[in-house]
Simulated scan of single mutants.
Amino acid sequence: MLNFNLHTTTEIVFGKDIEEQIGPRLKELGAHRILVHFGGSSARTSGLLDRVEKSLFTAGLAFVELGGVSPNPKVSLVRKGIALAEREGIDFVLAVGGGSVIDSAKAIAMGVATKTDPWQFASTGTKPDTTLPVGTVLTLAASGSESSNSCVLTNEETKEKRGITSETNRPRISFLDPENTYTVSKFQTGCGIVDIMMHTLERYLTPEGGESDITDRIAEGLLIAVRDAGRRAIANPRDYEARASLMWAGSVSHNDYTGCGRKRLFPVHKLEHELSAFRDEIAHGAGLSVLFPAWALYEMKNDFPRFAQLANRVFGVEMDFHHPERTAREGILTMKRFFEEIGMPTHLSQLGIKPENYAQLAANTVRTVKGPVKSYSALDEQAIIEIYKLAE
């Protein structure tokens, strides 16, 4: 187990009917003028936005709205949000939505506080050293952004998608009511299931960490719970306990708890970001469900025992101690079948990615990370193309 620091500072308020607490809690945190940031019309038509704003109004807090966040949040809207927040004297940003809304809110908050265009951080790898406080009202169990230290932005002009990781990104407070996810479509629920699992799998399947049994068992338990709750939520979208398990797992999976003592590399996320930058309509979870099994098949030769351990403990594949490669392969294929069971794509053609796109995507990926993608092996352009071929 490697040395580690665990710093999870987000207050989580979890459960039913918690919206009335939002105003009083933000007031306790020192908020006066709030930017309420959200996506499309569903936040309004569902009644959630009205309930949130009623709580703010009752608490005597001023607020202005900025909607329009789309999947793969755009830096152009972030810049509009920064200008609006500066003009209105905003001192707190409240995201009402899923990961894209939260990431956009984080970027606005850091832009206002640092007086720096957030794309400067994203494109150079530098980190903001301050931010406005951010709160979230979660409507989709997926990204874990409600308690994570990361955010991801898309530059629609350059067709680049990049992340910003900094402890200043962690929200001050997040309100998680599973009932707010009842109306999430089956496809988006499936995307969320995959994303939650990937945040733990990319911490679990890493070349550095040695023995980390307690962390492994925590990660494996989360993956089993998400798999089982995912099936239930797909079958019955109004299953409260299933939705609650997914919502809590989303936060735990990306607040670093399931990776303590292991080195985080996230190679599949880096590969996927280029897909959804190339084709904006590709949902992040859908890109991951296609690429992760292919990456695992490519890299399992570098750590058959660990891939076999995952197959046995999480997916119930009988361990072949003489040929762990067989166990590892069957575990990957079992996971791929699970993705298909919940309605997720597992082939690049389902995403509109063609073989003639491979070379450009691979080159874009290597350029973005400034060299081969760090993984069990160094993934250069040719290796990435081989992974694409395994995802055909």
Rank of each mutant, 00 (worst) to 15 (best):
N3D: 09
N3V: 09
T8K: 00
T8S: 04
F14V: 02
K16Q: 13
E19F: 10
E20A: 15
K27T: 12
K27Y: 05
G40V: 14
S42E: 12
V52L: 07
K54Y: 01
F57V: 13
A59K: 04
A62K: 04
A62I: 01
E65P: 00
R79H: 04
K80P: 00
G81L: 05
L84C: 08
E86W: 02
E86Q: 14
R87I: 03
G89Q: 12
I90L: 08
L94P: 11
A95Q: 07
A105Q: 01
A107G: 01
A109G: 11
G111K: 09
A113P: 04
D117G: 15
A122T: 10
S123M: 08
K127Y: 05
G135Q: 03
G135E: 06
T139H: 03
A141H: 14
A141W: 01
S145Y: 06
S147P: 02
T154A: 06
G163Y: 00
I164T: 14
T165N: 08
D177A: 01
P178D: 13
N180G: 00
V184M: 09
S185L: 09
S185A: 09
K186T: 10
G190I: 11
C191E: 02
C191D: 12
C191W: 04
D195S: 05
D195R: 14
R203Y: 10
Y204P: 04
G210T: 08
G210P: 11
T215P: 01
T215V: 03
T215E: 02
D216F: 02
R217D: 10
R217S: 07
D228K: 14
A229M: 10
R232N: 06
I234M: 13
N236E: 08
E241R: 10
D256Q: 08
K263V: 01
P267W: 06
V268F: 11
L271T: 04
L275C: 09
R279L: 13
I282Q: 01
G287M: 12
G287F: 12
P293K: 14
F304Q: 09
Q309S: 15
D320R: 11
P324G: 08
E325P: 02
G331T: 07
G331Q: 07
R337V: 05
M344T: 00
T346Y: 02
L348M: 13
L348H: 06
G352F: 07
I353Q: 11
N357Y: 15
N364T: 10
T368L: 15
T368K: 15
L379Y: 08
Q382K: 15
I387K: 08
I387G: 06
L390I: 05
